[in-house]
Simulated assay, not measured.
Amino acid sequence: MALCAHCQKPLTITIEPESDDEDADDDVPMDSEPDTLPDDVHLPCGDHFHWECLLEAYEYSKCPACNRSIVASSSSSSSAEEQIIVDLNNEGGLQQGIDIAPILKEESYLRAYPEERKCRAFLEFCSEGDHRAIAELLKSCGEEMAAEDEDGEIVTEQVGGPSKSADEILRYQDPIGDMASGLHAAVANGHREVAWLLLLLASEYPELDFPALVFQEAGALGVMREDQAGKVDIRTLKDAHGRTAEDVARSVGVIWNGWVGTGRLALLGTVSGSSGGSGGAVTVRG
């Protein structure tokens, strides 16, 4: 049987029985045993790893054990993105031919920059169209929890560990994803509710031009626009290709009819591909 090339242990993971009540140990049958589940990432070079062991030892293009290349170029993508195709066997069963390159890239980045974990979650919520999750994430910024240290002293720490402020999260641009902002992500995936929420919270788009339902929903979610003076307007943000969210909307098509050219997704006068991010915010209803 193959062993993990990193820790030399069997390619399994042990799951202890769980109890909802710490004091309810008597409810757990005496003969209950931990579940043993497969945990095997089979790389193209032939080596096997536990998932966590692979994350710990991961190097961008080479196997941590044999130093052979594990990347391949996508044959179906015009951008020829590099892939890492593996067979993955875990609690979900055997999955063959899975590309784990995006996951490895993001997890490696988060291990180096844990303070950006909420930023990464924010981008995912924008892509998925989950405006409620976005609101809850933003409200959690700056929250603290009290706990005792080893000496019994009360200390406070940020919920979820170190993270960015709400303003920083709203304007976050993905350094491992073409510098796309949350507005880029929402537009690319056709999520109008998220786009409206981001415009409300991170732009100077005139309040009178928002539908009343946008304010009602924001109020129900417990978030509202703050003074935007001196803050970066999210509509000016450009990705690594020099595109504003409006440029992305043009490529997406019909779902953004009435938004392009109105000042909703880019300040009027903003020129794609330029380094400037300012322009007159003249609004035309669409």
Rank of each mutant, 00 (worst) to 15 (best):
L94C: 03
A135W: 13
I15G: 00
D25R: 03
G230T: 01
A80S: 13
T270N: 06
R68E: 12
N90E: 07
R111V: 02
K105V: 09
E143K: 14
L123N: 05
G152E: 06
R132H: 10
E157R: 08
L104W: 15
R225K: 15
L199T: 02
P34Y: 01
I169G: 01
T14M: 10
L137S: 03
D39F: 10
L198V: 04
L267S: 05
Y60P: 08
D87F: 12
L198A: 02
F49M: 01
D239H: 08
D26T: 01
R285G: 06
F49K: 03
F210G: 03
D47Q: 11
I70M: 11
V248H: 04
D21W: 02
V159E: 02
Q83W: 14
R285K: 13
P44C: 00
F210C: 04
S75I: 07
P10E: 01
A188Y: 11
S203E: 03
E143F: 14
S108A: 10
D99C: 12
S69R: 12
W196R: 02
V223L: 01
C4D: 07
G129M: 07
Q216T: 05
G230S: 03
S108C: 10
R250V: 15
T283F: 15
R264Y: 13
I15E: 05
A218R: 04
A146F: 15
F215A: 00
C141H: 09
G152D: 07
T14L: 07
